[in-house]
Design a protein around this nucleic acid. Structure first.
Lengths: 213, 213
DNA sequence: CTAACGTTTGTCCAACCGGTCAAAAATTTG
DNA sequence: CAAATTTTTGACCGGTTGGACAAACGTTAG
């Protein structure tokens, strides 16, 4: 291998692609459970079923693994918001955005925790992306929502904080999963909790808590 | 000092109390910013203005600091929920709970992040407390809320998920502060963001997003 | 003053951790 | 097959970290 493997156009063999995937999968497991500094290369290597030097043959530095993971994460993580579109009924549109987000919390909790970990520590590695790509996307969608408000399709509020509240309530079920399950107990904390959450969130975001009539 | 200082009835001198407070304050700063494993005793000692062995004279192990911090945290952290009471108008009661929680996110972000960090990692050190003390408290308050629903004072929903959503939306402004500020930008991300959040959350929880009329 | 007790520090250590390196093993290529 | 190239591994290294320890320093009570 004469290639640098990290350059802008890294040619990779089939084995390299497979092993890199294996490592990234293992690293997601370990990083999301212990955070970046709380995880060791040995742990990741063991989870990937290879020796530490072997792992370091595919990723020169621990940080490279994390960085690669993070870059991929952001694309899939923001996909639900990107789908939020101006076509269709606004309330339906918002409701399905909430549902998509909640599904991601259920199906990809490790990704959610990895992201939460990074933000909690002050986002040292992805701050530029937050202030750039993310802000642009959110501003764009906030404009869409504002249009809905002007058209009288949904109540007038702050679109940015609306988006925050959707993020917060849905990701809560991934990031604070242990707490949610502890509080709900063995019976109510089972697989049904996501359906319960979906029902509750739908009602909250559509009608609030005031009694009808 | 012949005392063990960790026992069930630790007698402490005035200096010991002061220094222990100093250490806990420094540890809160460091732990909340870097997580448990990401923080070193040296960092805490430096932040507390003392040498590492000196710090270890007051807390024998790094984990003891974290544990002490955690125990204190939970009391103050759950105080707002404990105040939620059956006297007074239910909607007003809920609104002021949300406001209290949001104030805590604003005034004690380090505590919030410390707590979030612990939960994110699977709550290895406080799981019993979640399943015991916390669950009991939440169940108790859920019963109060259910009473309000039966009386037709607020809409019928799942009280547990309602509490989760309040936790999630308010703590979000402490735990994900970097992201919130990045998205809001320099102008809207200033000190006013908590008032904006309070206004938005009040509307969300009371009326939802459906347009009036 | 001085003995007893509480506090502080410099030094040291063993374990761990990220990363290197050379050489062996496996695989691909001619 | 044999040469070239890629992959894997064991051994090793320097720096960091949590913690131990004894000696020095300070303080207080008799």
């Amino acid at each position: 291998m004469t290639d640098t493997m990290e350059g802008s156009a890294p040619r990779r063999t089939r084995i390299q692609q497979e092993k890199r995937e294996l490592i990234l999968e293992a690293a997601l497991e370990v990083f999301s459970a212990n955070g970046f500094r709380g995880s060791t290369i040995d742990q990741i290597a063991e989870a990937a079923g290879m020796s530490k030097p072997n792992l370091l043959y595919y990723f020169r530095r621990k940080e490279d693994i994390h960085e690669t993971l993070m870059q991929r994460l952001l694309d899939t993580w923001l996909a639900p918001l990107r789908e939020l579109d101006d076509i269709g009924d606004p309330l339906t549109e918002l409701r399905s955005y909430i549902r998509r987000k909640l599904q991601m919390a259920r199906d990809f909790p490790r990704e959610s925790r990895l992201f939460a970990n990074e933000i909690l520590q002050g986002a040292p590695r992805i701050k530029p992306m937050l202030e750039g790509e993310l802000k642009t996307l959110v501003d764009e969608k906030a404009a869409v929502i504002k249009g809905w408000m002007r058209a009288g399709k949904i109540a007038r509020t702050d679109p940015w904080h609306l988006i925050f509240s959707i993020w917060a309530t849905t990701q809560h079920y991934a990031d604070f999963d242990v707490q949610v399950r502890a509080v709900l107990g063995a019976d109510r904390g089972g697989d049904g909790r996501f359906e319960d959450a979906a029902r509750f969130l739908e009602q909250l975001f559509l009608d609030g808590l005031k009694p009808k009539g």
